[in-house]
Amino acid sequence: MSDIEKTLKVAAMGDLHVREDNAESYRELFGEISREADVLVLAGDLTDLGKPKEAELLAQDLKACSIPVVGVLGNHDYECGAHEEVAHILREAGMKLLDGQSVEIDGVGFVGVKGFAGGFGRRMLGYFGEPAMKQFVNETMNETLRLENAMRHVKAKRSVVILHYAPVVDTIESEPLEIYPFLGSSRLAETIDRFKVSAIVHGHAHRGRFEGRTPGGQPVYNVARHIEKPTGKSYAILEI
């Protein structure tokens, strides 16, 4: 059987929030995932405050993972202004950390950006008003452009999009309505729907629901660690 025909089992999880006090280790979980899946995807908020020490603790736990690890950073990973050092530590540990790039593993392309906020559908923030508002919207637009550029470089017939922020409202249901604009943006889904993808994963919304669809009908999964998943575990298994 060729790589194109082979089903790839992808374990996906977000919002690990590794803390400096090392209150929770992921070593055993990563070992379990290595036995259950072919690839591990981490959908941002890998650290709690974006501290290099937190990244170092996660890097130690990742040693228990014997399968490729692909992922993106989340908003928490930027908190201390040390995101570049956090990214370096995780890449040195062997993680394929994506920020507007793609990587192919066993015939499946993985594309990743953090994404950003901005709201959904008719209530999505527009490019109008004060410079600060325009700057906010520009951040979302820049992330979607970087996502589109990365997706154009994917040669594989199957692909997985990795985000931190949500691209659809379906998977953030149960979150307070007041914070919807800060949980993601429809612009991400609009960009993705210009392509054919196998799955889209994100985190960030801890009270959302597991599964949704883009306007184009493509599957979206909220894999935040706190979300109930069909596996009954903190991670989802997707067959790509």
Rank of each mutant, 00 (worst) to 15 (best):
S198H: 13
F120D: 00
H164N: 08
H226Y: 13
S198D: 15
G208T: 00
E173I: 08
G121T: 02
K51D: 10
V197M: 13
V69C: 10
V70I: 15
V86I: 14
K6I: 11
R27Q: 13
F195N: 07
R146V: 01
D21Q: 12
L163S: 10
A43E: 05
G129N: 03
D21V: 05
S185D: 03
S185A: 03
R123D: 14
H226V: 12
A11D: 08
F110K: 04
I240E: 07
L97D: 02
A87E: 09
E139Q: 12
E56W: 05
P215N: 11
R207S: 05
E32T: 15
E130S: 14
K134R: 15
G121Y: 13
Y165V: 00
E104W: 12
I89T: 10
A12V: 06
H76T: 00
G74Q: 08
L163D: 02
L177V: 14
S102T: 14
F128P: 00
D193P: 10
E54H: 03
I33K: 06
E5C: 13
E104K: 12
Y180G: 02
R35C: 02
L97T: 04
A87V: 11
S34Y: 07
N222A: 10
V69H: 02
I179L: 06
E130I: 06
E85K: 08
Y235L: 05
V103Q: 04
N142K: 13
T214N: 07
T144R: 13
L145R: 15
G212F: 06
E79W: 13
G121Q: 05
V113T: 07
G74N: 03
V160W: 08
E173C: 00
V201H: 12
V70G: 02
G203S: 01
D21I: 10
I67E: 07
E85C: 00
S186D: 01
I162K: 10
G217I: 11
S34R: 07
L42P: 10
L49C: 11
D106G: 10
V18T: 12
G121K: 14
E239M: 14
M124K: 13
T7M: 13
R123H: 11
R123Y: 07
L57I: 15
R27I: 13
Y221D: 09
D45P: 03
Y221G: 05
C80G: 11
G74W: 01
E56G: 14
Y235C: 08
L98T: 11
Y26S: 00
Y78D: 05
R35Y: 09
L8F: 03
H17K: 04
L163C: 07
L147W: 02
D170W: 01
A43C: 15
L183I: 03
G74P: 04
